[in-house]
Nucleic acid binder design. Structure first.
Lengths: 130, 130
DNA sequence: ATGCACCCTGTAGCTACTAAAGGGTCAAGA
DNA sequence: TCTTGACCCTTTAGTAGCTACAGGGTGCAT
């Protein structure tokens, strides 16, 4: 299968696939006589894994670790489990920060009732030293 | 005031301040005889505004718009108000996405009870068939 | 005069792609 | 057979928002 087909099947841009190859996260494909990359179903599986993981918010470094862990069949599941837990903790932190942010912004909005920027509380509040 | 002091007061890295100047978002400072940047309290106020806005998750482009809006004292507050509302909508989207993500990951975790990676449901679920 | 903290410019690196320039390959249709 | 058009190739540079050097100069206290 050529790169365009693989791209379609995994919902990935062609350039991104070549980028993954350059980065060494996706193994190099065989080449046809005309120098086209020729992918196997193993490539399809691995790229699917990578994309799913990235979609879930894992960084490239984390995906690399996941792939390393997954490559050793006899390793305990615990490593993968730990990474997932860690990632959930990160997500929780982000959600908390965003929620605080939202409250602050919405508070600012409540205080914006004047007609001119000169009296705008939002502008004031953003420039104040705290 | 020299750049180091401004950096301390605004909790900003020195390099970041110079970057803001290069980007044209913070006006150039006067220079001393020895070519040191010499900042005024107007710079302090503007940088504080920029940093607060960035902390609230506004992009550089948005901060630029906010500054433009704020610079015209007679403009109605509505522009700033609209940007804040828009930003809140973005934040709500992000929170929603992260919450979904968290649910998915936590679901994966529940299914991880085997001893070996070979049977790890997380790895399977992510796309790797072994 | 010497040490040290601070400042300067310029350049390159980071993440995870994305785009574009300038070309080659291949199958189908006229 | 020739041409068209979709696909592929490599290389390079761009994105956001900083951050980190390298290789120097400045200013002040001892």
């Amino acid at each position: 299968m050529f790169i365009g087909e693989l791209a379609k099947k995994t919902n990935t841009k062609v350039e991104t696939i070549r980028y993954y190859e350059r980065e060494g996260i996706l193994p190099e494909a065989d080449r046809t006589y005309g120098n086209y990359r020729d992918y196997s179903s193993a490539h399809l599986a691995k790229l699917t894994f990578i994309r799913r993981s990235r979609d879930l918010g894992f960084t490239m470094a984390q995906v690399r670790s996941l792939l390393d862990l997954a490559d050793d069949e006899d390793q305990p599941c615990a490593g993968v489990d730990a990474m997932a837990r860690d990632h959930i903790a990160n997500i929780d932190r982000k959600i908390k920060d965003l929620t605080l942010l939202r409250a602050e912004l919405s508070h600012l909005l409540d205080s914006c009732e004047s007609e001119r920027i000169g009296e705008c509380r939002i502008v004031e509040a953003l420039g104040e030293r705290r």
